[in-house]
């Protein structure tokens, strides 16, 4: 199976600074892959290497089996990298005509992509007069011109207002549902949590985790606040095993299925423990992300 994106030991050094350090990742056909990391983690440099804009110091990258720079390596790839770059004296439509001519795809899809990003009404205006959000949407429109099988979007919601961000999420979901493979770099974790199938987390130039969002967030736990805490801890350990009970912040985190909450409550009460709080607790992607990236930092 030819993977849309595959890197192995991808490394980029600038002098003594290692921007990307041996990243090996895969993006599978049809998935929406979130590429996460704090600013300066190496996300954009990695994407630039994938697209042939930056030459790797070591390692390899392949898009649909083709190395960057090979003829046709970007034939079915649309990309928006580090903000939209267009000609300010040209209209939005003329900018897309320029892009279409470079890509050799013809100009037949220009109206379609303008509609997709809701920019058709302003397509005749000069790019220099666009708001940040409109510029961003034109960047996405340009990325979609080729009707790509793989779409690489680097912080696509930058500059968008909440409504624009919601529209962008809807668009990405729709494209993903239609079978387009999407690699999405973002630091907006709520956004990634909502739309991505799998994520790769990069920190300090290294890939520190790669899995589905659910796996990364781990199993939901029960949060219990009870008194006396020592008694509650002993009872919970007897019920569930010591390794599934963690004392934290004056309460307990129990690694147990949420549907067993009533049973846990009854057992604790029967043991003379006063339970003042019992709720299901799910780790957010943000918490996981901070744990992973702080470990590296």
């Amino acid at each position: 199976m030819t993977l849309p994106v595959e890197t192995e030991g991808l490394t980029k050094r600038y002098g003594h600074v290692t921007a990307v350090d041996g990243i090996s990742l895969t993006v599978r056909p049809g998935e929406v892959y979130g590429f996460l990391g704090p600013n300066g983690a190496g996300k954009t440099t990695t994407l630039r290497m994938l697209l042939g804009l930056v030459r790797p110091t070591a390692g390899s990258a392949r898009i649909f089996g083709e190395a960057p720079g090979a003829p046709g390596h970007l034939a079915s790839v649309g990309a928006l990298i580090e903000g939209p770059g267009f000609y300010p004296y040209l209209s939005g439509r003329d900018n897309l005509r320029v892009v279409a001519r470079y890509s050799g795809t013809g100009e037949g899809r220009i109206d379609t992509v303008l509609d997709l990003v809701d920019l058709r009404d302003r397509a005749g205006d000069k790019f220099g007069t666009y708001s940040m959000g409109m510029k961003q949407r034109l960047g996405v429109a340009a990325a979609l011109l080729k009707d790509p099988r793989l779409l690489i979007l680097d912080e696509p919601t930058n500059g968008l207002d909440p409504a624009g961000m919601a529209d962008m999420r809807t668009l990405v979901r729709r494209l993903g549902t239609a079978g387009t493979t999407i690699m999405l770099s973002s630091h907006l974790l709520g956004e990634v949590q909502q739309i991505c199938d799998r994520v790769g987390v990069v920190a300090g130039g290294r890939l520190v985790a790669e899995s589905t969002v659910a796996q990364l967030r781990g199993q939901a736990t029960l949060r219990v606040v009870a008194e006396p805490l020592e008694h509650a801890t002993a009872r919970a350990r007897a019920l569930l095993g010591a390794d599934r009970v963690r004392v934290r912040d004056g309460g307990l985190d129990l690694a147990v299925e949420p549907e067993k909450a009533a049973w846990v409550n009854a057992e604790l009460v029967d043991a003379g423990v006063a339970v003042s709080e019992l709720r299901v607790r799910e780790r957010t992607l943000e918490e996981v992300f901070l744990e992973l990236t702080n470990d590296v930092g």
């Binding site: 804009l53 003829p71 046709g72 990298i81 580090e82 000609y87 300010p88 892009v99 470079y102």
Partner: peptide, 17 residues
């Protein structure tokens, strides 16, 4: 001109050498 407007990336990701 591509340097001033940051358009090299826009041009090159379209696929031309």
């Amino acid at each position: 001109g591509e340097y001033g407007w940051g358009t090299w990336k826009t041009v090159l990701v379209q696929g031309p050498s």
